[in-house]
């Protein structure tokens, strides 16, 4: 079974994230890393593989990213967790690509790699759209089994639990399929020393737009179907009143709430 895990390289959320002059995400000033939410996708791929191996079957995990040179770091991390190989789509023309373009590139790369199961994270921690997995399913023409907090694969069927706003649902689809998993799906493992060493020798294939038969006009800032016209830093909140509780803190707070007409 071939599993492709989509992982994104993102600016560290705890850093001081900004936009650049062309209103794309500044990826230079803040350190990047493998999006934490995609670690859960790698983890589930590993667990599904281990489960199959216990049953005497095989599975191979390819981690895939679309991103700049540094995005290799994200691939390395996923490889050190235990993925088998990596594909890096990198091309100068990709700068400023929106979700429509990224999903096109990912879909072509996934088809080229070959797959039975695609696993993605629930959302990227920079764009936070959470729609790419659904779009991938649409583009690949396979079932979408997304936002799972529990997932299992058996006999060519993927099953999982999706906790929605109003109900919790049990889902089922046949492979090939696109899955996305939430941060409720189970803690991601830390790479072991052995894993880190082994990762250095694992193959990382680089692809550009030509390799995927994609025209430069279909992607990048020019090819984007949405445009950011303005980005402004949110004004800092005006400093509030802070009191130390000397026995009356609750009452003081109640007075504040009353003054603001909440009580």
């Amino acid at each position: 079974m071939k599993i492709v895990v989509c992982v994104k390289y993102v600016p560290d959320a705890t850093g001081d994230r900004h936009f650049t002059d062309d209103l794309t995400v500044d990826r230079d000033d803040v350190d990047g890393l493998l999006s934490e939410l995609d670690e859960y996708a790698v983890e589930q791929a590993l667990q599904i593989t281990e489960e199959r191996q216990r049953a005497g079957a095989d599975a191979e995990i390819t981690v895939l990213t679309v991103g700049p040179e540094d995005a290799k770091d994200a691939l390395r991390k996923a490889l050190s967790m235990g993925a088998d190989k990596a594909v890096h789509v990198e091309d100068d023309d990709l700068h400023g690509t929106d979700v429509m373009g990224t999903s096109l590139v990912l879909a072509k790369a996934i088809e080229k790699t070959g797959y039975d199961l695609v696993i993605a994270g629930m959302a990227s921690t920079d764009g936070t759209m959470g729609v790419l997995p659904a779009i991938l399913a649409e583009r690949l023409g396979v079932p979408q089994v997304t936002l799972l907090s529990e997932v299992s694969v058996e006999d060519g069927t993927v099953k999982g639990r999706r906790d929605g706003d109003t109900a919790s649902e049990q889902l089922e689809a046949s492979l090939p399929a696109v899955v996305s998993v939430t941060d409720q799906s189970g803690e991601a493992r830390y790479p072991s020393f052995k894993g880190i060493m082994a990762a250095k020798k694992k193959p990382v294939e680089s692809l550009d737009l030509d390799d995927l038969d994609i025209e430069a006009e279909e992607v990048g800032l020019e090819g984007a179907w949405s445009k950011v016209d303005e980005a402004a830093e949110r004004p800092a909140r005006t400093a509030g009143t802070i009191v130390k509780d000397e026995g009356e803190g609750g009452k003081q707070l109640a007075a504040f709430l009353a003054e603001r007409k909440f009580v």
Partner: peptide, 16 residues
């Protein structure tokens, strides 16, 4: 915050 109380929530919240 617009209003903050530095204190033990087990004291402050029930009083509030």
């Amino acid at each position: 915050v617009d209003y903050g109380v530095v204190g033990d929530l087990f004291e402050v919240v029930p009083q509030l």
